[in-house]
Computed example of a mutant assay.
Amino acid sequence: MHARVIEKWLQTHPDSPQPAWLVTLEADSPLVYEPGDWVTVTGVNQPAWARAILAQLNLDPETPVTLRRHGDVSALDALIHHLEITLLDPALLGKLSRQLGLSYWPDRDAMRAYADSRDLLDLLIEYPDIAQLGVELLPLLTPLLPRYYSIASAPNPSAPNQLQILFKQLEIHQHGRTRYGVTSTSLASADTTANRNAMFEIAIKPNPQFKLPVDPTTPVIMVAAGTGLAPFLGFMQARAAQGARYNQLYFGETHAAQRFLAQAQLSGWQQAGLLQLVTAFSRDPQPVDYPTPYYVQHALLKQQAWLDAWQAGGHIYVCGSKLGLAKGVESAIKQAWLNHGLYAADALDQAWLDARKSGRIALDVY
C-alpha cells in the first residue's frame, strides 16, 4: 500500500535539536487499524550519502547492479531506494570476513559491537580493502528496511484513508560525521503540495497486546516520554469519542517551552474534563524537594492519582524507551504499591507479572 504526506506540524521549537513532527498520511485505499497499532513506513536514503558511498567504492552512479528483489538497477538507485546503508548488519561483517579472509572482528560479539555505532560509509572509510570490492559489495547489503511507528490517531470514518504518526527527526553525531534517520528525514522533508506529494510504502501492523479496554468506564493510565506519546493520542481520540472521562496521562520531555509535544491536543482534552495530565520536564527548574533531573517515573511517585485509578480496576499503558522509561516506570509503580501496602516486598515481581499477563499493564517499548 502507498501513502502520501498531506499535512505536517512541527511539534518542537524551531531551534530545538532533533525536531518532532506530527504528520498525516493519506493512503490510496481505506486503512483498517485500531488505536495502539503500528504502521511501517519505508523511506529513502539521502542522495548525498549514497554518492559518498559510491565515491568510496570508486563507482560511477550509473554502474549497473543486479539485486535479488529488484532486478537490474543503477548503483545510485540501489543505494537510495533499495539498500540499507545507515544500519550496519553484523551478518554483513560475517560474510565479508568469510569471503575476504578478514580477521578484523574475531567473533560475533565483536561484529555486533562494531556495527552498533557505525554505518556503511564508516565501514568503507575505515577498511579500504572492503571498498575495493566495488559493485560486488552491493548485492551483499541488507535490503532497505521499513521503520515501525506507533499510529498517533484513531480511525476516522470521515477520513478512512488517513492516519497520523508522531516521530522524532533523528540526527546523530558520531565518528566525526552527522548522520540522519532514513525514514524520519524522508517524512519530515516530504512536500505536502498536492501535485508533488512523495509516495511512501506503508503497511499496518497489529499490536494486539496494546489495546484499550472494551468498557469505556474502565480507568486508563498512560505513561510516555517523548514521541512515546504517539499511541496515546490515538487512545484519547477514541476515548473522547466514547465520552470516557477516566483518563490520566503522565508525560515526560526535556523542556516545556521547546518540547511539549501535541500541547494543543492535550490541553484541549484537559480543559474538556476528559484528561488528567501530569507532566515532567526533566531539564526545567524543579521545586526544591524534587529530584533533578525530574523524569516521568518521579512524577508517578509524586502525583499518585493513578494509584486510585489502578485500585478501581484501571489499566496502565507505558510507551517509550525499554531501558530508560520502562525500567524506571516499573520501579516507581512497584515502589508505590509497596508504600501503600498493596503488596509485600517479596510479592512485587509476581504482582507485576500477573498484571502484565492479565493485560492490566501493557508495554510498547523499544
Rank of each mutant, 00 (worst) to 15 (best):
Lys302Ile: 00
Val182Trp: 10
Asn45Tyr: 05
Ala3Ser: 03
Met1Asp: 02
Ala257Leu: 03
Leu76Glu: 08
Ile361Glu: 13
Ala309Ile: 00
Ala48Asp: 06
His82Ile: 00
Asp119Thr: 12
Tyr114Cys: 06
Gln263Thr: 10
Val73Asn: 15
Val23Asn: 01
Pro160Val: 01
Trp310Ala: 01
Asn207Pro: 09
Glu171Ile: 12
His175Tyr: 05
Ala78Gly: 12
Gly71Arg: 04
Thr217Val: 07
Trp38Val: 09
Lys322Ile: 05
His70Pro: 00
Asp109Lys: 06
Arg356Ile: 06
Ile172Trp: 14
Ser189Arg: 15
Gln242Gly: 05
Ala305Arg: 10
Leu92Ser: 04
His175Ser: 10
His173Ala: 14
Thr292Asp: 11
Arg360Trp: 04
Thr12Asn: 09
Leu212Cys: 08
Leu277Ile: 13
Arg283Asp: 04
Pro30Ala: 03
Ser158Glu: 01
Glu126Phe: 02
Thr192Lys: 07
Lys334Ser: 14
Ile80Val: 15
Pro293Asp: 00
Val32Lys: 01
Leu138Ala: 02
Ser153Pro: 08
Leu83Gly: 07
Leu54Ser: 13
Phe260Ile: 01
Met111Ala: 15
Leu300Ile: 09
Ala309Pro: 10
Lys322Met: 05
Ala272Trp: 05
Gly228Ser: 03
Asn161Val: 05
Leu275Val: 02
Glu171Asn: 14
Leu275Asp: 09
Leu123Ser: 01
Val135Tyr: 15
Pro216Leu: 03
Gly181Tyr: 06
Ala240Lys: 02
Val135Phe: 11
Val65Phe: 04
Gln248Lys: 07
His173Met: 11
Thr66Trp: 08
Ser117Thr: 14
Pro19Ala: 06
Gln248Cys: 07
Glu171Phe: 13
Gln209Arg: 15
Leu342His: 03
Tyr33Val: 08
Thr193Arg: 05
Asp346Asn: 15
Ile85Glu: 03
Ile204Glu: 04
Phe167Arg: 10
Leu88Tyr: 13
Leu100Lys: 00
Pro206Gly: 13
Asn58Lys: 07
Leu121His: 10
Arg245Glu: 10
Thr218Pro: 07
Ala299Asp: 14
Val135Arg: 15
Ala256Tyr: 09
Phe232Trp: 07
Gln304Ala: 12
Ile361Phe: 12
Asn197Gly: 07
Val39Ala: 06
Thr40Asp: 09
Leu145Gln: 12
Leu363Cys: 13
Val44Pro: 01
Gly313Lys: 06
Ala194Asn: 14
Glu136Ile: 03
Pro208Met: 03
Thr183Tyr: 05
Leu120Met: 09
Ser184Gly: 03
Glu26Gly: 02
Leu274Glu: 07
Thr12Asp: 03
His81Pro: 08
Arg69Cys: 05
Ile204Lys: 07
Gln242Glu: 03
Val220Asp: 09
Thr142Phe: 07
Asp349Thr: 00
Gly341Ser: 05
Gly268Asn: 04
Ile165Val: 06
Ile333Ser: 08
Ala50Ser: 00
Leu87His: 12
Gln174Phe: 12
Leu25Gly: 06
Ile333His: 10
Leu22Ser: 02
Leu363Phe: 09
Pro128Cys: 04
